[in-house]
Design a protein around this nucleic acid. Structure first.
Lengths: 305, 305
DNA sequence: ATCGACCCTGAAGCATCCCTACACTGTCGC
DNA sequence: GCGACAGTGTAGGGATGCTTCAGGGTCGAT
């Protein structure tokens, strides 16, 4: 049982297939298979089992994969130890975020001053909810969002909630419903709607809205990008759900809180546990928390939720 | 930087020479040297430096060696994880103790019942104080003793104090001084003494006694083994310091507490940090703590200290 | 100062390990 | 039932890690 084999087992647990593991670790499936066999030879309980043509971890395999995370974390800490002595200031932290969080957080992180700060590499990644965790393989930190009632992130990643952000109804300033301070599902169920694509986090609220009003909603447009959606709402294309804080207010729109349905999303930062062994990563994590507070404080004063 | 190289670095830090490291790891000094060179190649700060003809760790090397302990601990935990699944009840725990602790603790540990308990392998090892830590390489647990005022154990081993045991003056029941409830340095400084060999923990109390009485003590016999010393005391060979709880009371002797000097030893259990990852080792550790309480409770009723 | 003992390091050689390439078997979906 | 896909075995090659042996630096005793 060596570190390499444990790493392979861990990836297999997270990715669920030998081929994907091989791809992630830049090796051939055959090599993965062989290392798994060697690992198994040293261990008296089965670590893997076939599931159709796939290979998955047994319960024991999952337990060992969890232990493998500790091993990698310890090794990362060792590397950080020597970086501390080398005093390398060129630490780079890579970070991905979905669009609205990227727009809200990235500028704040850039202006956060201080000498010797880690240098940041940003990337925007708008993916379906279940794809966020595996982005942590490519980026040190991943800003992800999920609805409050959605299933939690897998335990293979560490997740910290940065904010619990209400989702409001965006409508043109001149719209009749704009006169009300808050909107009920029955208020809005008859309107045409602009929603995200299927599988994206906000979608479940639309379903809940439909259920609360006991009526099928008319989904006219499917637009993931909130700024695009905002422009379409302003042009009279329909109503849309918009995060209260992380999108810049559109001059021609107003936001109204929803009552009667749970319309709130978590903005979380995800990372593989061992990444937090790096001091630079921890620094950025705490800057993120500070930025989240700033974003909530400055938001347009719409209360409720 | 792999696990093996970190292990070698750690041993070098603890043993202080390439040759000793090679011996401990069952390899040749040349192999150790080569692995250290490979490790160094990956790291931008010097990890080792020459000290005469010896090779020792730099500060950075010591820090990395400490991190190496975490790596080994994580690997040990991984092994324990699979043992948990395998449900192996045949866990063996090896344990060494200096003589008096061995006599006091080993029987209690044997009678500690319970099904599926770890099986114990005992060994007695009476070594000079500075040799105790390296016994942890050979045994899972090492019972060691040191005087309260002595330097603490090195940080490379984990130490838990089981008891702080007073050292009393043993004297024949018919001795004139036996009439006193407690003895001062001046009371005993004129008597002939039986002491342990140089370098053994109790010796420092003799020195303190000498200093407190401002007088050179007459050291007649050098006997490490307390039961032997007890018999010699009974035969009128002189006075001796005896631990209050861990030696069986001799029928012809009485113990009298000393005042005026700090005469108390710690009975500690030492182990390499990663050994505690094993459940069986933790079980025995807690049994040791319970045994220590029992030993103190049952001791002959001599109060003071 | 010199010699021998000791300690570390380097070169050569060998066994082992780990990977790729390729062929094969089993499984799923159309 | 066929093609696509997933995993596994074998052969072979390069890298790795060790031992052996030789050499150079350091310490202590004579």
């Amino acid at each position: 049982m060596n570190e390499r084999q444990l790493q392979i087992l861990r990836e297999l647990g997270e990715l669920g297939s030998v081929t994907a593991t091989a791809e992630a670790l830049l090796m051939t499936p055959s090599a993965v298979s062989q290392q798994l066999r060697l690992l198994q030879r040293a261990i008296p309980v089965p670590l893997t089992e076939r599931d159709g043509r796939r290979l998955v971890l047994t319960e024991a395999g999952q337990a060992l994969a969890a232990a493998a995370i500790e091993v990698e974390t310890a090794l990362s800490r060792a590397r950080q130890t020597i970086d501390d002595f080398a005093g390398l200031p060129d630490a780079r932290v890579s970070m991905a975020a979905f669009h609205s969080a990227a727009a809200a957080f990235f500028p704040l992180l850039l202006t956060a001053g201080g000498a010797g700060r880690p240098r940041l590499s940003f990337a925007d990644e708008d993916v379906a909810q279940d794809r966020f965790p595996r982005l942590t393989r490519e980026y040190d930190l991943v800003l992800a969002h999920r609805l409050e009632q959605a299933p939690p992130w897998p335990t293979t990643v560490t997740a910290v909630t940065l904010m619990r952000e209400p989702l409001d109804v965006a409508l043109p300033a001149g719209h009749p419903l704009a006169a009300k301070r808050r909107l009920t599902p029955r208020d809005v169920a008859g309107e045409p709607w602009i929603t995200v694509h299927d599988g994206f986090p906000v979608m479940a609220v639309i379903d809940a809205l439909s259920a609360a009003a006991n009526r099928r909603l008319e989904l006219v447009h499917r637009i993931n990008e909130f700024t695009v959606a905002a422009d379409v709402v302003a042009a009279g294309g329909g109503l849309a759900l918009m995060p209260r804080w992380t999108t810049r207010p559109h001059p021609a729109l107003v936001l109204r809180p929803l009552s009667g349905v749970h319309a709130r999303r978590h903005v979380d930062v995800l990372h593989r546990p061992e990444r937090a062994a790096r001091r630079a990563v921890r620094t950025v994590l705490s800057e993120l928390r500070r930025a989240a507070l700033a974003i909530q404080g400055r938001g347009p004063a719409v209360e409720g939720g």
